[in-house]
């Protein structure tokens, strides 16, 4: 049981995930599911579960990338605006090429490539400014957050960018269809989460990210290329924002300045609820997934029940987020 020895130095390092505090987020999720099932018969219906999981996918895919950024001691506030900007660009690219390529799979692939490429470049810009220019991640991404938000407003001329109608029927299945009754966003979210979990636990990159976030000086002396690890976390996050956008655009076929507002905070909240440390050094991808589910279940349950004034939705969310984190801290103290 190396957990005990790890906990003698709380906060700096963590042992294998077998210690008791893993129960915190799982317990919170279980309580929410039970509450939902008791309050409404339709809560556990196939349609509702599909709805909740599909709509979690955007934040979820981003939050997996955010887990790595936070684990390595960074932060990215720009992801919501970045998603809006990528969505706008993806729509413009597809609308622009529609006359030459025609509505079809080829054009969808071009749109996807554009989204991934933009995400990669945007992540690289964040990473470059943070690692090479040595600017605080908070400031860099606060800056790029404003830049992307303004750019999408400008691209849309203050209104809404809408995908050409002929294209919508072609691209719609990406959000609404799937295989074996499981819709694509859920499948992609699951794949991203599993890959993220494996990389965090088994790959050198995951250990390096935690080492950099724990103490970058020590990591540097242990011949970890600190800047490269940091840079890669931002690039991965950028690409994942691109992936999330690919899932998002088919849903309503539009992007505007109100797209992706506060996604960054939801993603960060999900990461922290899941047990990753905000100051870095320890990350838990599966915890992030649970955090994302907790956040979207709260919304879902509040919509499915009467009796709570909609004015109070935000307050209830806040209480549950704080409770989920307190639950972990107490378990940790017990251990």
């Amino acid at each position: 049981m190396s957990a005990a020895s790890a906990d003698t130095n709380p906060g700096a390092r963590s042992g294998p995930a077998l210690d008791l505090r893993v129960l915190g987020p799982i317990l919170a999720l279980a309580v929410l599911v039970l509450t939902g099932a008791m309050l409404n018969d339709n809560f556990l219906s196939y349609a509702n579960i599909t709805n909740v999981l599909s709509r979690s996918a955007f934040i979820g895919i981003i939050a997996v990338g955010m887990t790595f950024v936070i684990t390595s001691g960074g932060l990215d506030l720009s992801v919501g605006s970045m998603a809006a900007f990528i969505a706008g660009l993806m729509i413009l690219v597809m609308n622009g090429l529609l006359p030459t390529l025609g509505p079809g799979v080829a054009l969808v692939l071009v749109g996807m490539a554009a989204a991934l490429a933009t995400g990669l470049v945007a992540g690289f810009v964040n990473g470059f400014l943070i690692t090479t220019m040595r600017i605080e991640a908070f400031i860099v991404t606060l800056g790029t957050m404003g830049i992307y938000r303004s750019l999408v407003t400008w691209l849309a001329d203050g209104g809404t960018l809408s995908l050409d109608f002929g294209m919508r029927t072609v691209i719609r299945p990406i959000y609404y269809d799937g295989i074996l009754g499981i819709s694509w966003p859920i499948i992609v979210f699951a794949l991203v989460a599993v890959a993220g979990e494996v990389i965090m636990r088994r790959a050198a990159f995951g250990r390096h990210a935690a080492a950099v976030g724990s103490n970058d000086q020590v990591a540097r002396y242990s011949s970890v290329n600190v800047d490269r690890v940091r840079m890669l976390t931002y690039v991965f996050l950028g690409i994942l924002v691109g992936v999330a956008t690919i899932m998002y655009v088919p849903r309503l076929g539009s992007a505007s300045s109100s797209t992706g507002v506060l996604w960054e905070l939801e993603a960060i909240a999900a990461v922290i609820i899941g047990g990753t440390m905000l100051k870095g050094g320890f990350g838990r991808v599966w915890g992030t997934v649970i955090g994302v589910l907790i956040l979207s279940l709260i919304d879902n349950i509040l919509n499915l029940t009467d009796g709570v004034s909609p004015y109070l939705n935000g307050a209830i969310q806040g209480v549950i987020i704080i409770l989920a984190v307190i639950l972990q801290r107490e378990r940790k103290a017990d251990a």
Partner: peptide, 23 residues
């Protein structure tokens, strides 16, 4: 039957309407 805030926003209203349809 029900009233919720969709915040004059497409995404929020999509989510709220999905839940109304389940309910």
């Amino acid at each position: 039957l029900d009233m919720e805030h969709g915040n004059w926003n497409r995404d929020d209203s999509f989510t709220v309407m999905q839940d109304f349809l389940s309910k």
